[in-house]
Amino acid sequence: MKILAIDTATEACSAALYIDGVITEQYQLAPREHTKLILKMIEALLDQSDIELLALDALAFGCGPGSFTGVRIATGVIQGLAFASDLPVLPVSTLAAIAQQAYDDHQHQYVLSAIDARMEEMYWACYHLGDNGLMKLAGEEKVSSAQKVKLAVDLSTSWSGAGSAWESYSEQLNAVLGIQVKAIYPDYLPHASSIVKLAVDDFQQGKAVEASQALPIYLRNDVAKKKASQ
């Protein structure tokens, strides 16, 4: 199986290629440079593996949450590529990608994945280990203040935290959770390599959608005030 994934939802920009079990990745911390980099990263990965876009089975992308514009860059690029090449698409959560990395790097089986959403809020979700070494969502992904964060599974298990919200709101989070968090990785950003790994499983489960249905998940939807409520 062959899948290409990209992510531009945060200050990180990455692309990864999965070819029959082997993952190669291009990753760069590049605030505001995503539009300059992402297509070249894709081209480089395909060239390195000497493979054409049309020979792939599917495309995947970090569909959010994250910066609105960042999420739309990946969405636009994937929509364009998928439409032109008639490939199916797997939208993968950026929170899932962060949790997956915490498991892959440190074998943490319970991860509270949280991205700073500014305006005193965070995008967050609880992930725990499922089958085949893949992290699974427990409950829902949400946007809220640290005060409203709740762990999905009983507190006796030991949790880890990952993602930028653990930098911005670590004190509030620790206070709210009322437990000792095992480890914290505040510098974790979504990687296309984690996204492609999750996408392979999603693809096998028939979760692929067509290009026009490859849409962002913003979580924050109250972005403007209507005239009546102004």
């Binding site: 539009t35 297509l39 894709i42 081209e43 876009l53 739309r72 860059i73 969405t75 636009g76 690029v77 994937i78 929509q79 364009g80 590529l81 439409f83 032109a84 090449s85």
Partner: peptide, 10 residues
Amino acid sequence: ACTGRAMAMA
């Protein structure tokens, strides 16, 4: 621009 540029690439 993202969609159009990527479409042309593919």
